[in-house]
Design a protein around this nucleic acid. Structure first.
Length: 693
DNA sequence: AGAGTGGGCCTTTTT
DNA sequence: GGCCCACTCT
């Protein structure tokens, strides 16, 4: 199996010959069969590390070889990055082909591709072509405003919080169920509020329409509506996309599956790839039924299984297989390890989170000495806050790291503050942007913002026009308002130069605002400068704002990508680690009460999803796996709670079954956790094997 | 009246 | 770190 690249990198593009691409050289028999399956519906069940991405790339190349033009292929992936990676690899493989311009291949997330379609057809649905996109925070704020509009938050009768209501509306869209159905099935205690919640939903829809904005769910919902209700759009899209490829199909929800079916039309030329064992997005409406019932929806589909794991050492895979076997609702799995033996996974009980962090940090340094580059090491956890002690420890020791979880770049308050001036200047109907922007000026709070918005929204024309002509209500801070007016006018002049527009906001008032409000103002100012520099490459504010909404993390693009090429340990939530792999992986906080999260333990279905999450985490590791769990937690000052190892560890009974070896950290000497010497020989042998690859 | 501030409380995962 | 609420300051 030496010919199989462990890293999935394709290396230099092979010289195209008559057969163009040498499939046999790069693929095993299962992968080859899937990649070369005849046109028509194809389901590929691809176990973790079985070369799913590679197979999909070659499937894409195969479709091109069948004469489908690049623009006729639609690749839907879970992240923009995954799409980019696959399209690039496919482009490399077919690069020298005459007549094929691989840059015309289209791919991205469902949301991005929906956005692309909607930009062209928004007016059919009553939205402006340059409609804005609400992120989760905007969505919650608008829902809160709708609840207030309807007078539901007043009175002592407890109405659910805006973020809960927003999540409910979102779930309703993504699962394609009515609020009534959803309440009856899952939120019985609020069932009596159905009429009020329906009114909120209506109001929310109206206000988005009035503001000319869509939320993330709308990008799917309205795409689906276009396909369902506008025959000419449906015909156009069906004609354009001769082949559809969907990655991570196990994480699609009902509306996404419906879009795929409608796009596919009678041609039914759909390839979906996924692994039911890795479905971990049910909170976003992901429905395992999609992949389990694909053969029903697309009768006569070809089914291919990729069962050879080329990623992990057999010892790691054995642990993963043993764990997932505890789940009941799944395709039976027989994932075979293809690599040579490696070290056993290591179980590391730590006294507490601090000792756990110390162990991880120290072990990372040892691994680096043994030849593991830092970029080949990751620490994964269930919830972002579980990374805190480790972040402190790594910083203390000067170990460079990069955190993938947590608040994303574009969601930070200071970034959103600056952006709302561009949003407002671009779209004067954007009430959320108006309120947020105007309240940054001293002396203007919620009430004054209300009055100003009433006056502003009653005026006509562009944002600058309105501010010039509106009848100013009686407000306290006319100086603040005047500064706001001037700044918006200036930004409106700079819509064709978003980078400069951002610089203008920063220098006119925002930098000063940051410096008087925050100790870390320098870092925030630096973020905004970086944003401005990045914005400068866009032709106008509209294109820039759309990209900001859909990108969701800068890491998908330039900044962190550059950083990752350097030497950084990765810290990541398990969810964001999906599809990635490292030579050494640490899992931390594998303790009852923390993993699985307590909210998921009551329901066996949710517990199975947590176990899949654990499975995903374990299967990220290629060579070494460390399972860490603290024994003491200190939730509050002085309070100490004994933690048992996670049920996912207990049920494995790993010591007796030889699934792992246990390391004991010596009390009081966490600075010097010991690695048993016999591991050295193993590791060196492993290192040699790897180098020869 | 309304803007601004400080303390208590909770915190899953993400396009 | 963010949200909500109560309190103080203008």
């Amino acid at each position: 199996m030496a010919r199989m690249s462990r890293t999935y990198r394709l290396g230099p593009a092979p010289t195209p010959r008559a057969s163009l691409v040498d499939f046999e050289r790069h693929l095993d028999a299962e992968q080859l069969a899937a990649a070369r399956a005849p046109l028509g519906p194809v389901l590929v069940i691809a176990g973790a590390g079985s070369g799913k991405t590679r197979t999909l790339v070659f499937r894409l190349v195969h479709l091109l070889e069948q004469g489908i033009p690049p623009e006729g292929i639609l690749l839907l992936t879970f992240t923009n990055r995954a799409a980019r990676e696959m399209l690039d690899r496919a482009a490399e493989l077919v690069g020298a082909l005459p007549g094929i311009d691989p840059r015309r291949l289209q791919g991205g997330t469902f949301h991005r591709m929906g956005h692309r379609v909607l930009r062209r057809h928004a007016e059919r649905l009553g939205f402006p072509p340059g409609f804005g996109i609400l992120d989760t925070e905007d969505q919650r704020d608008l829902v809160a405003a709708c609840i207030a509009d309807l007078g539901l938050s007043v009175g002592r009768r407890r109405f659910p919080r805006a973020d809960w209501v927003a999540a409910l509306l979102s779930e309703s869209v993504n699962t394609q169920r009515t609020l009534g159905e959803l309440l009856a099935a899952r939120y019985d205690r609020f069932a009596d509020l159905e009429p009020e919640l329906v009114r909120v939903a209506h109001r929310y829809r109206e206000r988005k329409l009035a503001m000319g904005v869509m939320d993330f769910d709308d990008l799917l919902l309205h795409w689906q509506r276009l396909l369902a209700e506008h025959a000419e759009v449906r015909a156009e899209l069906q004609a354009r996309y001769e082949a559809i490829l969907v990655d991570e199909y196990q994480d699609t929800n009902r509306i996404q599956a419906d879009i795929v079916e409608r796009l596919a039309g009678n041609r039914r030329n759909v390839t979906v790839v996924g692994d039911d064992a890795q479905s971990i997005y049910s909170f976003r409406g992901a429905d395992l039924t999609n992949i389990l019932e694909f053969p029903v929806r697309f009768s006569g589909c070809a089914i291919h299984r990729l069962t050879a794991n080329h990623r992990s050492r057999p010892q790691i895979l054995a642990l993963a297989n043993a764990s997932i076997a505890h789940n009941t609702r799944q395709f039976p799995k027989d994932l075979r390890a293809m690599r040579e033996d490696g070290p056993l996974p290591v179980l590391v009980p730590a006294r507490d989170a601090v000792q756990q962090a110390a162990f991880v940090a120290q072990r990372i340094l040892e691994l680096r000495d043994e030849g593991f580059p830092l970029r080949e090491i990751a620490v994964l956890y269930r919830a972002h806050h579980q990374s805190m002690e480790l972040q402190i420890e790594l910083a203390r020791r000067g170990i460079p790291f990069h955190v993938r979880s947590g608040v994303r770049f574009f969601e930070q308050a200071h970034i959103k503050d600056v952006l709302c001036f561009l949003r407002l200047a671009h779209n004067p109907a954007d009430e959320l942007a108006f309120r947020r922007a105007v309240r940054l000026f001293s002396g203007i709070g919620a009430k004054t913002a209300d009055r100003l918005w009433t006056a502003f929204s009653g005026a006509a024309g562009s944002a600058a026009d309105r501010l010039g002509t509106l009848e100013l209500p009686a407000i306290r801070s006319t100086a603040g308002y005047e500064a706001f007016r001037r700044l918006v006018a200036a930004v409106a002049e700079l819509l064709a130069a978003p980078g400069t527009a951002i610089e203008t906001v920063l220098s006119s008032m925002y930098e000063e605002h940051l410096r008087t409000s925050f100790l870390n103002a320098d870092a925030r100012v630096e973020d905004i400068r970086q944003l401005a520099a990045w914005a400068a490459q866009f032709p106008d504010a509209n294109a820039f704002l759309a990209e900001v909404s859909l990108l969701s993390d800068l890491s998908a693009q330039d900044v962190v990508e550059a950083a990752e090429k350097d030497e950084f340990v990765t810290l990541s939530s398990i969810h964001r680690a999906k599809g990635l792999e490292w030579r050494a992986v640490f899992l931390i906080w594998l303790a009852e009460g923390h993993f699985p999260i307590p909210a998921a333990t009551a329901d066996p279905v949710e517990e199975e999803e947590e176990r899949r999450c654990f499975y995903v985490a374990v299967t990220r590791a290629r060579d070494e796996l460390y399972l860490c769990h603290p024994i003491l937690a200190a939730p509050r000052d002085g309070e100490r709670i004994l933690l048992r190892p996670s049920r996912f560890l207990q049920e494995l009974d790993g010591e007796r079954k030889g699934l792992w070896e246990r390391w004991s950290l010596e009390e009081g000497s966490e600075e010097e956790a010991v690695a048993p010497p016999d591991r050295e020989a193993l590791r060196q042998a492993a290192g040699k094997l790897l180098e020869g690859d």
